[in-house]
């Protein structure tokens, strides 16, 4: 199956990229945009099976995300 992983900066953690983008948008005429947070999107394929969710959770916790400063969520999509 396929997993889609979304990684975002934890709430309350400074997101310098988001701030820089938020400041740049009005200059291009996009007014009123706020709350820009920059994260990562990861796709990967893994074997089907019961424990896939648990495995994904471990992968996220150990490698894909840095749980000290990032949150993650993922979707499992059967092939």
């Amino acid at each position: 199956m396929k997993a889609k992983v979304y990684i975002t900066p934890k709430k309350g953690i400074l997101d310098p990229q988001g701030v820089a983008i938020e400041r740049a948008l009005p200059a291009l005429g996009f007014e009123g945009v706020g709350g820009v947070r920059v994260g990562k999107y990861i796709e990967l394929e893994l074997p089907d099976g019961e424990g896939a969710g648990e495995e994904m959770d471990k992968m996220c916790h150990k490698l894909l995300a840095n749980p000290i400063i990032e949150d993650y969520r993922f979707e499992l999509v059967p092939d």
């Binding site: 310098p16 820089a20 983008i21 740049a24 200059a27 291009l28």
Partner: peptide, 14 residues
């Protein structure tokens, strides 16, 4: 420029 956030040079070009 602009911290090179998003992509290097991506914001500066505007």
């Amino acid at each position: 420029s602009y911290g090179d956030y998003l992509r290097c040079g991506a914001i500066a070009r505007f």
